[in-house]
Amino acid sequence: MMKKIELEVNGRKKTVEVDPEEPLLYVLREDFGLNGPKFGCGLHQCGACMVMIEGTATYTCRIPSGQFEGQKIETIENLSINDNKLHPLQQSFFEEQAAQCGYCVNGMLIAALDLLRKNKNPTESEIREALHKIICRCGTHSRFIKAVKKAAANSSNL
């Protein structure tokens, strides 16, 4: 059953007509044209689909889009909107070459952003804990950890 729902994504409100049971991930990709969040496992286990919901990293591949009406949704695309510059977190990922295939990068950035917004100076253990829920099949977790440490050192820009 189709229904009109209003979603606020990256500061922009838009009314979409969707089945409110359709997962938010699909609505973000199909109705908003956002390709940052990815479909990975479909089980809330890999993190490829993560976005920020009201400031908290949240899986989107299974949760119905209708549940997000009235909430602020932020995707990876929102990080570098200002002046077409990379967000400091993205810059640190780039400098540390913290990606190979790139499939997990969305989840890694969102999980790291969630951590750094809540804790400007995390320990390595806290970084590992925040990122452990994101599956990286290329095995570059050590680079992600270095990148988050670097971003934390420049946390005044986050």
Rank of each mutant, 00 (worst) to 15 (best):
G47N: 06
T60R: 01
P20W: 08
A130M: 08
S92T: 12
H132T: 14
Q45C: 11
P88K: 03
F94H: 12
S92Q: 07
K133I: 11
N119L: 12
A147R: 00
K120L: 12
E69L: 01
S142F: 11
L116H: 10
M50I: 02
A153T: 03
S125D: 15
A153M: 00
G102S: 11
L34V: 06
A98C: 11
I63Q: 13
L34W: 05
A130W: 07
P23L: 00
N84K: 09
H87E: 14
T60F: 05
N119D: 15
V18E: 03
E96G: 00
C61Y: 11
A153E: 14
E129S: 14
E22C: 14
H87Q: 13
K118T: 08
Q45T: 15
P37L: 03
G55H: 10
K150F: 03
A151N: 03
N106Y: 10
I73E: 07
L24W: 07
Q45W: 02
S155H: 13
A112S: 15
T15D: 05
Y26V: 03
L34F: 05
T123S: 15
Q71K: 15
L115M: 01
I145Y: 06
D114Y: 06
P20F: 11
K14F: 08
R62L: 15
A98N: 12
H132E: 14
I127G: 10
S142E: 11
E124P: 07
G36C: 05
C61R: 01
F94V: 15
Q97H: 13
R12Q: 13
F144N: 01
I110V: 15
L113C: 09
A99D: 09
Y59P: 10
Q97V: 06
H141F: 13
K120C: 06
R62Y: 09
R128N: 14
I110S: 11
C49L: 04
E95Q: 14
P23Y: 02
N35V: 07
S142P: 00
P23A: 02
E69K: 07
L43M: 15
E17C: 04
Y59I: 05
G47I: 05
E22M: 15
E77Y: 11
H132F: 10
G66P: 13
R62H: 11
I63L: 13
M52G: 04
T123C: 09
F32N: 02
C61D: 09
G33N: 12
P122D: 06
N82S: 12
T123H: 09
L115E: 01
I134E: 05
